[in-house]
């Protein structure tokens, strides 16, 4: 019974897909089947992986946030400029600053959505413009912070702890915390409750507005964290970094089975979705497909996932109806 439930779950299916993709690519090109290749892939996709968690929370309450990469750029640019002009040196401080900026950014989006009743897509679109522009403004209109300007901070992207990149430790920490919070704490279940039936949640005493504010604030926090990771991993900060990356994050969640209408989705699903998104660009060159094809294949994949999902659901419904006796 328990096994059946596990194998029937969407996460299991995704897990199989991830393993299969990994296996096929490894067979064609054994170079991929190495610790370094895998950790490199994780490191390079740290930003998407981390932000997918925040997006999971936002989508669970039926929302969406397209301002996240603007938040990332603003917070990343902030430390980029601070480092460049020698105002700060501490890596820890950099992280705190980006996360602080991100939290404020996310909270503003959340306030607009939860308190002023603005639809999430519109609210986050407005802030997408605003934060991106602020990133430009603090960069004195388009200055970069290159690797040399970043000082010791860029080492965070390459340093290791217990044989594993620090960046990966950050990812792991985020996923572990989220997994526990979403599954085993009241606040996590309240997020699911709000997404599943906001009205009922209100009646049972859950502060729906506060939950919405919270998920957007956490989203901002993670976008800020991703700002630090982006600057560290790519050893540079520029105001147009990660532009359009929010779509990758949303796509990762969708592939991972997070419902757009709220209430459905899991941390494991988001992880697997983000991994699939990360493996596509890795896999293509190994399969001798031109990198130019990358985006189209990604798009087709997202479309295929959602369409197949609907078809499967329809078949399941039809079968359930056919079984009903009359």
């Amino acid at each position: 019974m328990k096994l059946k439930k596990l194998t029937g779950s969407r996460e299991f299916l995704l897990f199989i897909i991830v393993i299969a993709m990994f296996a096929i690519v490894s067979i064609i090109n054994p170079a991929f089947f190495s610790f370094k290749a895998v950790t490199d892939m994780l490191r390079n996709n740290a930003v998407t992986l981390v932000m997918a968690l925040g997006m999971l929370g936002v989508m669970l309450v039926g929302g969406i946030d397209i301002s996240i990469t603007s938040t990332l750029a603003l917070s990343g640019m902030a430390i980029g400029m601070l480092l460049k002009y020698g105002h700060i040196q501490s890596t820890l401080l950099c992280f705190l600053i980006t996360m602080g900026i991100g939290t404020v950014c996310g909270a503003l989006v959340g306030l607009l959505i939860s308190r002023a009743g603005v639809p999430p897509i519109i609210a986050s679109m407005g802030f997408m413009y605003i934060y991106r522009a602020m990133g430009y403004l603090i960069s004195h209109g388009g200055e970069w912070a290159s690797a040399a300007a970043l000082g010791s901070f860029k080492n965070f992207g390459t340093d290791k702890l217990l044989g594993l990149s620090k960046v990966i430790w950050v990812i792991i920490a985020c996923y572990v915390i989220f997994f526990i919070v979403m599954k085993w704490t009241r606040i996590g279940r309240q997020v699911y409750a709000v997404g599943s039936n906001a009205e009922a949640a209100e009646v049972s005493g859950i502060k729906v507005k506060n939950i919405k504010l919270m998920v957007h604030t956490v989203m901002g926090l993670l976008a800020g964290l991703a700002g630090s990771l982006q600057v560290a991993v790519y050893a540079s900060a520029m105001p147009n970094m990660a532009q359009g990356g929010e779509m990758d994050v949303i796509a990762a969640c969708v592939i991972g089975g997070v419902s757009m209408s709220g209430g459905r989705g899991s941390v494991v699903g988001a992880l697997l979705g983000a991994l699939i998104m990360a493996m596509i660009p890795k896999a293509l060159p190994l399969l001798h497909i031109d990198a130019l094809w990358q985006n189209m294949i990604k798009g087709v994949m997202i479309l295929a996932v959602v369409v197949i999902n609907v078809i499967l659901q329809r078949i399941a419904n039809r079968n359930a109806l056919a079984r009903r006796e009359m």
């Binding site: 279940r189 699911y192 409750a193 599943s196 949640a201 209430g263």
Partner: peptide, 11 residues
């Protein structure tokens, strides 16, 4: 019914 369709009965 003020229920949460996506969650389990126990929840």
């Amino acid at each position: 019914a003020t229920s949460y369709p996506d969650l389990t009965v126990a929840e």
